[in-house]
Design a protein around this nucleic acid. Structure first.
Length: 583
DNA sequence: GGCACCGGCCAC
DNA sequence: AAACGTGGCCGGTGCC
């Protein structure tokens, strides 16, 4: 039970005194209360500052606290540490309504996630974090209350509590970050909050009419296909009604499986890779594969996406989870702009507004470059330094033929290996992918690893370490914890694959996050904004007249970011200036 | 009616 | 050495 005094600031005189008082503290707890969750459609009602021994709550409906130069300076300064839980939310609000770029962030949510290292059984909401690290219960009952009308004393005091909690929480989290040697990755993550918040706020432009046309077209194709598929499946449907369509739900895997069985087609499941071998023999199976793709297109990429368009901006403002995957990758939702089909018909709907261009930049083969730098595999380093086509060089070495004599199939197999090896690709997987006998795949794998023996050694060591230490780290020092039963062979095998993959995938996340931070600052001089980020790709929307300059900057900052983590291997970025999201 | 789970499929 | 990693979204299904 805290008795920290809570001072309500609702006039200019009190504000100036409060600003002077706040400004002397190196670390302050910070929180806001808003009239809603969407920054574009809601207003900031309260901003709460916690300093040792005192909470200050400013009612923005009564005093223009964020016009105060001293307050603004404190918020924008990297020198003063502002402690928040899920800072992205507050950052968006401050940026959207007051044009304040909050810097010097310590985010207790991200800190807790970094310390948790991907353990799945722990939550990272404020209540869970406070309970775990401070053994303190948090009352969230007033959080969803109405912050738009007259406020009670209890509401003001409730509002102050979360900000107050930030100070002790930071103390304990900072100690653990230190002990776990997570300082570098924490800095990386904290500096990334503002760029990601700004990216969400900027949103991505979409040509709604173009998308609607596409969706209707696809919808028509879906109708036709469903009739055709029902026709194909008719012999397998138990009691087809004499009139009308046969009764089957095409979207029910169980019913599909049942119908196929009645037709004498026995298959384990109805996933496309399971169906593919039977497609040539059975027209119904071929039709089903076709139907599935269009079903996905209609439901995931059809009209529902348009409902995410913000009425105020006419743009899509997705939600990025900064630490969305255990390795540190971001994830994206509502809508997920990291999974838009990579085909011209879909991507061309993402068009820059008139007078603007999209600068699309992605790292070229970044993961294998990380692996090369890390393992220092002689052949792989040499191949990447040569600047030749990597897959061709790989094939040439594997199969012992000259570069010019590498066949299409050999290059394709080498490419599969170069991409798949970090996922723990095995012979069966390779055989399925390049459509060859298992024995051939085994032989290719053996040749691959004898070509790149240093890489093989590194991957095996990474796998062993994961099993032995139950943890791994990325290049920024990000910690990845593995939970498994050592008696269970399949679990051990899974951890071995994770041990190989996660440091690479996670280091890629380190690099792109560093790039976002550098790029956000570098673009300030331009009329340009980061609008999307897809693991190894960054999309920037820029004024047409500045697109060339923007493209140079994007490329430069992305390469600078990568060089901070990869020193011995050249990094290249492919950049395109385009009207739409097309390469 | 809401929630969790699964099978399935999209991205990198 | 019988299974290539990370996510999110959708509809069906079964539960409360």
């Amino acid at each position: 039970m805290s008795t920290t005094p809570c001072v309500l600031i609702e006039n200019e005189t009190a504000l100036e005194a409060a600003a002077r008082e706040i400004a002397v503290h190196p670390t302050i707890g910070l929180d806001t209360e808003t009239t809603g969750l969407d920054p574009l459609c809601s207003r900031v009602r309260l901003i709460q500052f916690a300093i040792p021994g005192k909470n200050l709550v400013m009612d923005l409906f009564k005093v223009r606290a964020l016009s105060n130069p001293e307050i603004r300076r404190v918020l924008e300064s990297s020198e003063t540490v502002k402690v928040l839980h899920n800072a992205k939310f507050d950052v968006k609000m401050l940026l959207c309504h007051f044009n304040i770029e909050l810097r010097g962030i310590f985010d207790t949510l991200l800190a807790s996630q970094l310390i948790g290292a991907g353990r799945i059984d722990i939550g990272h909401g404020l209540a869970a974090v406070a309970d775990r690290h401070l053994s303190q219960e948090v009352d969230k009952s007033a959080q969803a209350s109405d912050w738009s009308g007259a406020l009670t004393q209890a509401q003001y005091e409730y509002a102050a509590k979360d900000a107050e909690l930030m100070l002790p929480l930071r103390e304990t989290l900072a100690v653990q970050i230190d002990e776990l040697r997570l300082n570098e990755v924490a800095k990386l993550e904290f500096e990334c909050v503002l760029p990601i918040a700004a990216m969400e706020l900027a949103g991505m432009a979409i040509d709604a009419a173009c998308w609607r046309n596409l969706a209707t077209e696809v919808g028509r194709a879906h109708e036709i296909l469903s009739i055709e598929l029902k026709h194909e499946l008719a012999p397998g449907i138990e009691q087809p009604s004499l009139f009308g369509e046969p009764e089957i739900n095409l979207d029910s895997p169980a019913q599909i499986l049942d119908a196929l069985a009645r037709m004498g087609i026995n298959v384990e499941g109805t996933r496309s890779w399971q169906l593919q071998p039977l497609a040539a023999e059975h027209p119904a199976v071929a039709k089903l594969i076709e139907y599935r793709a269009i079903q996905k297109a209609v439901t995931s990429y059809g009209l529902p996406l348009l409902e995410h368009i913000n009425p105020l901006t006419g743009r899509l403002h997705p939600d990025f989870r900064q630490i969305g995957a255990t390795g540190g990758r971001m994830s994206c939702s509502d809508p997920n702009l990291q999974q838009v089909p990579n085909t011209p018909e879909y991507r061309s709907c993402f068009r820059a507004p008139a007078g603007r261009k999209l600068v699309i930049a992605d790292y070229s083969q970044i993961e294998i470059r990380i692996l090369a730098d890390w393992s220092q595999d002689t052949s792989l380093v040499k191949a990447l330094l040569s600047g030749e086509d990597l897959h061709r060089v790989t094939a040439s070495q594997m199969f012992g033929v000259k570069l010019e004599e590498v066949s299409k199939e050999q290059r394709a197999a080498a490419k599969q290996l170069n991409y798949g090896i970090m996922y723990g690709l095995g012979a069966p997987g390779l055989a399925a992918r390049v459509n060859c006998p298992l024995s051939e795949a085994e032989e290719m794998l053996r040749k691959y690893f004898s070509t790149y023996s240093g890489m093989a050694a590194w991957l095996n060591e990474a796998a062993d370490r994961a099993v032995r230490d139950r943890e791994n780290r990325t290049r920024s020092g990000r910690l990845i914890h593995f939970d498994f039963d050592p008696q269970d062979r399949t679990q051990v095998a899974a951890v071995q694959r994770l041990g190989k993959n996660s440091p690479i995938q996670g280091s890629c996340a380190d690099i792109i996050k560093r790039a976002l931070a550098l790029l956000h600052d570098a673009l300030k001089a331009l009329d340009a904004k980061i609008v999307n980020c897809i693991h190894d790709e960054i999309v920037v929307e820029a004024a047409e007249a500045e697109a060339d300059r923007c493209s140079t900057i994007v490329e430069h900052e992305m390469i600078t970011a990568a060089r901070e983590f990869i020193s011995s291997i050249p990094v290249s970025v492919d950049t395109v200036i385009s009207d739409a999201w097309l390469k």
